[in-house]
Amino acid sequence: MSTPFGSRLRRLRQERKLTMEQLAEAVGVSKSYIWALENNPEQRTQRTSVTVMNNLAKALGITLQDLLGEAPSEALGGEANPEDVIFFRNYMSMDADDRETYRQMLEFFRKQKDKCVN
Rank of each mutant, 00 (worst) to 15 (best):
D98P: 02
D84E: 02
A75C: 07
E70R: 15
A96W: 07
A59F: 00
F109I: 08
P41Y: 08
S30P: 01
N118M: 13
E74I: 12
S7P: 02
T101H: 11
E21D: 10
K111A: 13
K31H: 09
S2N: 08
P41F: 06
R44D: 08
S7A: 13
A57C: 04
N39F: 04
R13D: 00
A71Q: 15
R16T: 09
A26N: 04
R8S: 07
R89N: 08
E25V: 03
R11F: 10
R10F: 07
T45L: 15
M92R: 15
Q46Y: 11
D84Q: 00
S2K: 13
N40S: 11
T101Y: 13
T101D: 10
G78W: 15
Y102T: 06
R110C: 04
E25Y: 00
K17H: 11
V117T: 05
R89S: 04
D84N: 04
Q22R: 11
A71E: 15
L18G: 08
A80R: 01
A59K: 00
T48A: 12
C116S: 14
L18P: 03
V85M: 05
L64R: 07
T51D: 15
E15R: 14
N55I: 02
L76M: 09
L12K: 02
T19F: 11
T51H: 11
V27W: 01
D84K: 02
L68Y: 02
V117H: 04
A57D: 09
L106K: 10
Y102Q: 10
L106S: 11
R10T: 09
P72Y: 00
S32N: 05
R47T: 14
L76E: 09
L60C: 01
G77K: 06
M20W: 01
A75F: 09
P41N: 07
A59W: 01
E74A: 10
K31S: 04
F109Y: 15
R11M: 08
A96Q: 08
N90D: 14
G78D: 15
G6M: 03
K17M: 09
V29F: 07
T48F: 03
I86H: 02
E15A: 12
R13V: 00
R13T: 01
Q46G: 12
P4M: 11
N39K: 14
S32D: 03
M92C: 13
T48V: 14
R47V: 14
E42N: 13
T101R: 11
Y91S: 02
M94A: 12
Y102I: 14
A57W: 00
G61E: 05
S2C: 08
S93I: 01
D84G: 01
N118Y: 13
D114L: 10
F87V: 10
S73V: 05
T45E: 15
S32E: 03
G28L: 06
L76S: 06
A36I: 04
E21N: 07
R11V: 07
